[in-house]
């Protein structure tokens, strides 16, 4: 208050002072959060990223060696590519599953909607480790999924240690992060718009694709950003359901960090991952700036 009254002029003061005063209070309220983030997020992240350029294990010796080591190794590039691919496939799978689920949630009764939402949220309460272990139980050679295959007259399949197993687990765990933003957007779409399109001569499927789907874009973008960025850094699921031969970037990072204590190399990987995530978020923002669906809200 004292600061703002000092810098505002006499004429404009009557209008701008309350706003600035309010701003000051909000900044003050947010200050602990900023401090917390600075100490526990900004500081360690910068340290790790910094070590990319300061800490070297032989044969790396200085400069951009750590980045060169990571991007130069064929195996590393394969892992990077695989990580991005897995994140992309997880994003696509979660949106394919989440869309009909979210749509259904907008048309059912309030009670059914609560049950549907609860069914999704309740699995989040059990912790990520337990959820991954239940996938181990389900997917193992003598597990329930294989029992079903046998009952259908098929042969048992070795799921664990394969990419499909990792994708199943990741899709399941990331599903709520796609569903919730998508549902929030679908709930706001006036379904009479679809009826209007039909009265104007559009078949139900054209009305759906030309009106409903474009208007749901903001939900897909928001959900995809969350899912893709989270998937890029996934560790527990690939570690438990996948294999060392098919590892993802976070597993490689963990090896460098934990086994060889090569902090510089881990930092280089973290940097690459961060750039990949940033590129994706920038892409999402670009879509949201050009899409007129954002005009609806």
């Amino acid at each position: 208050m004292s600061v703002s009254s000092g810098i505002t002029g006499k004429q404009t003061g009557a209008v701008s002072r309350p706003f600035l005063a309010r701003l000051d209070q909000w900044w003050l309220l947010a200050l602990p959060v900023f401090l917390f983030l600075a100490v526990f997020f900004l500081y360690p992240t910068s340290i790790i990223l910094l070590r990319t350029f300061t800490e070297f294990d032989a044969p790396q010796s200085g400069g951009l060696d750590n980045l060169a080591w990571f991007l130069g190794g064929e195996a590393n590039r394969t892992i990077l590519f695989r990580t991005i691919l897995v994140a992309a496939v997880s994003t696509i799978l979660t949106s394919l599953i989440a869309f009909p689920y979210a749509y259904l949630m907008t048309v059912v009764s309030a009670r059914t909607r609560t049950v549907m939402l609860g069914a999704v949220l309740i699995s989040m309460f059990f912790g990520i480790l337990l959820r991954n272990f239940s996938w181990v139980v389900m997917l193992q050679y003598q597990g329930s999924l294989n029992d079903v295959l046998v009952a259908l007259g098929l042969n048992r399949i070795r799921f664990l240690g394969t990419m499909p197993a990792v994708l199943m687990g990741m899709t399941h765990i990331l599903f709520p992060f796609m569903l919730l933003p998508l549902y929030a957007v679908l709930r706001g779409i006036d379904r009479r718009l679809v009826l209007a399109a039909q009265s104007l001569g559009a078949t139900p499927s054209r009305a759906f694709w030309q009106v409903y789907v474009p208007l749901s874009t903001p939900g897909f973008v928001a959900g995809s950003m969350l899912v893709f960025v989270l998937a890029l850094g996934f560790f527990v699921t690939p570690a438990l359901l996948g294999s060392q031969q098919q590892s993802l970037l976070s597993q490689l990072m963990f090896t460098q960090f934990d086994k060889t204590a090569a902090f510089g190399r881990a930092g280089a990987m973290a940097l690459v991952l961060m750039i990949a995530a940033t590129v994706f978020v920038v892409l999402g923002n670009a879509i949201s700036r050009t899409s007129r669906a954002y005009e609806a809200s």
Binding site: D190, R192, L193, L195, A196, A197, Q198, S199, L200, G201, A202, T203, P204, A207, V211, P214, L215, S291, R292, A293, E295, A296
Partner: peptide
Amino acid sequence: AYKRNIGVVFQHYALFPH
């Protein structure tokens, strides 16, 4: 509805916002 060739003006207009 889409084969009826009837124009409808809705209560809150139902214009396509995009």
